[in-house]
Amino acid sequence: MVPSKFAYHKPSTVKEAIALLATHGDDSKILSGGHSLVPVLKLRLNDPEHIIDVSGIDSMGGIRDNEKSITIGANSTHGEIANNAALKEHAPMVALAASMIGDIQVRNFGTIGGSIAHADPAADWPAVLLAADANVVLSHAGGQREVDIDQFFKGLFMTAMGEEEIITAIRIPKTAFNKNSTYVKFPQPASRFALVGCAAAISNSDGYITEARVAFSGVSATPFRDSNVEKSLKGSVLNEGSIATATASVADGVSIMSDHFAAEKYRKHMAGVYARKALSALA
């Protein structure tokens, strides 16, 4: 369990990090908390010649409670997120999901930026960020851009990030649906990643659902929102009946992953079970 030899760089600004990325390109990997990258290095599934450690970049840390959104620095650990008062108030599913990642040691080191850059479809973050209508802030040599989360996850370990871009922050809008949100997980028993992770966020007006966002990790190689579920819920009153109707065919038309823990049929069924659990918790 020793990685191949690599050169180690520890930039202190985003600019420096991007310059290093530009110089070393394909031969480099960004390191933040290391909980996605280091296992891959130790198993020698990847052997970059350069490691660019962004954990020392101050501007990428911290969670800022702004007027309309909460900005989570990409270097924020899952532990920081789980314990953040603003997130607990304005987007409880974000703090809740963070508290369900790995164990205490993992949560104290692993970062949200590193996790979504890795884009493991069974990670907890994709479902939650999709449901939260988050934006991903990407920095590059010319400045920065924000990518809507719906456009971010492109497939198994694939994202919309450019080769010379770094995730510097994630923005969670302060919306009514985020204030009323939750996350539930059917964990893979060994890794405790999600066989099914379901995040649900719902806003109501006069008892009727005005917006519903329901998203899944673990079910498909690309994390997704289930528009059928969302459409079915919109305009209805959230109760046992509307939940049953909306979740009758979760993940229809989606290509579903299969492994020895959960083959396609069972995984699809469990997506429905966990959608019901999540929605029932909000009812």
């Binding site: 198993l43 028993p189 060994a190 890794s191 990643f193 020895h260």
Partner: peptide
Amino acid sequence: CEGAIYDESGQLVNGTYMDYVMPRADD
């Protein structure tokens, strides 16, 4: 929880703790 799984070619499929399930306190 436990159990070694081999594929057709004789590879141990669950040869890491990401896949080989050990019982834990909360089980």
